[in-house]
Design a protein around this nucleic acid. Structure first.
Lengths: 192, 192, 192, 192
DNA sequence: CATGAATGAGGTTTCATTCAT
DNA sequence: TATGAATGAAACCTCATTCAT
């Protein structure tokens, strides 16, 4: 893919993250990327097409950073979960407290309107949940967790807490609520 | 307030829930409510004004149903939390699995764009969290929960799990993930 | 129908006649009709919608003028055909020599691209052909024509000559060719 | 002329015949001809330039096929007119019933808008009319036609009937009307 | 209260053409 | 020759809002 196209996608990710997909106009993107109308439609067939490219790019990044770079490494499971929380809190801190989770926002805004968006986003969430579930299973096998844990369900609840926590953080415009929730996770799964 | 205005608000709640605020046009609402341009602008100064009325109405309803009708009653705390989960799962089941949480969606779509929306929505979430925290405190005093619980933080995590769970449910288009998460809540807080 | 809408249709008929449907932009019409964008789309759902309204209006007018006002009257058949030729030559003379037949042009430009246009235009041509065929039949019964005439086929050939004659007139930018062709018709059917 | 350019012209003839000149975009042609932007503008200065090349090519072909190959041969006049009708009906039958006469369409769409197009197209029609007039003169000299015939005017009416007949055929989407009209021609000029 | 005509900015997209390589 | 990136005017259409009745 041309680096120009990639550049437009990256800038669009920021714009769409901060304004939402619907509220972002093609003109907004043209302006931010300093390109002309025709140039945009040279690289993308439509705004929808760009939206999908943005989701794909976001998913690819997060798969690399979170799934591959943190959760599926050979580190010990406690470290992996700790780093996941760290990543969730700090990696895009400034943007997130203001605008929320780039993935979660698109999930809510677009999953309900467009099946293509939904499927791409859902794949990522499933990977995330499954990776966490594997780690929880590993911890149970290591007797680091008691037997009341159900890896799949607990993994789902952890991801839900992170996404829901970011939602509350945006609503309160205060990072403390997210930290509180992470403490609850840390305590339950002995991540300290 | 005139019942006509109230009727428009109710219909708008549905339309905005299913399409999102931005994607909902004034015409969409006029059509759904079977009113003309003049009617709409007689009752509301602007689309923004309607949006705020919709949020207020939503908050009022949920305060009544959830905060007053369930959480702040004199029932025993376990029953109250059980009913909260029940309410979250069943009260608007069909719409929610398709379109997600009416409140959470607006939180994500509008809190980041408009301070007025944010404050109204945040008040509700704070009430919710505080009410749940009170119940958890009550349970601790009753020795129904061990001392590792922090009422405020656990309340935040519970609300986060519900909102995040609905997000995952929409993404998967499957209610099971929400039920899984509720099981995790039930087990941790001995709600069975 | 509002007279404003009717006014827009009338002006559009002229613009579309002179530029063709495809080459006519909504802005062209807005400008000619001195209305704003929103006004246009208040009266018409789309440019296509306007196109159909223009065809309908054109058909209605011609049905009244030609079919009802000339061909289906109780005049004697010769007079009726004479008046038809007169009407074809003079009624919209200035526009026609420059831009051709408003109906024929749309037939060629739009019938091939859009079934709705085709059907509306075709109905008019069929009425025309049938009315001429009836007159030819009447003339045969009156022994004003010899028996080698086939009313239906001769009617088709007469309409074809008029439409084809206008085409040649536009191509030559000279009305003489049309008059030549009318002379041939006059002679064959003894209309002098 | 390079055969590449000739190839583009041929493909453009088809595309323009089926969509019309205005509705055909340069991209449509690039796609159909499987060439890039640069290629197109290497061979043609503009879309207008291509349009003229298409008309010239069409005229050249038809001059060869119809004027030289049929009408100006040394065959007997009846045979020549018979073959002309045959050519008009069968040579491009499938395209014509759907999209009409390639020449007549351009005459109507472009003659009114562009003098260069008009002149080129008109030259062809004049050649056609003159060739038919010569044949009719020949037939009169042979006493194959009575003296009521005026070669020039009858030739014009014959060409008009063919072009108008194709117009009606497209409008009706039925070849029968064209055959009917040809029967009228055949009978009048004793071509059977 | 109510209607719906009017406004015009701005939405997404297409187009013919030019430029850099 | 050839590619396809770049340009910007203009296409069709929607929108929130105001105005006249």
């Amino acid at each position: 893919m041309s680096s120009k196209k990639q550049g437009i996608i990256l800038i669009s990710r920021e714009v769409i993250h901060s304004k939402g997909y619907q509220a972002t106009s093609v003109s907004d993107i043209m302006e931010a990327a300093k390109i002309g109308k025709g140039q945009f439609y040279h690289y993308f067939q439509s705004k929808h097409d760009l939206g999908l490219a943005v989701v794909e790019d976001l998913v690819k990044d997060w798969e690399e950073q979170l799934i591959i770079g943190i959760l599926n490494t050979s580190n010990d499971p406690v470290t992996k979960l700790q780093r996941m929380l760290q990543w969730a809190e700090t990696s895009h801190a400034e943007m997130e407290i203001k605008y929320g989770c780039a993935m979660g926002n698109l999930a809510i805004e677009m999953s309900t309107q467009d099946e293509e968006f939904r499927i791409k986003i859902n794949e990522f969430f499933n990977h995330w949940i499954n990776s966490v579930a594997d780690i929880l299973t590993e911890m149970m096998e290591n007797h680091q967790l008691d037997q009341s844990i159900n890896p799949k369900k607990d993994a789902e609840s952890i991801v839900a807490m992170i996404e829901g926590g970011i939602l509350l953080m945006v609503s309160q415009q205060n990072i403390q609520v997210l930290r509180d929730i992470f403490e609850v996770i840390i305590q339950k799964y002995h991540l300290d």
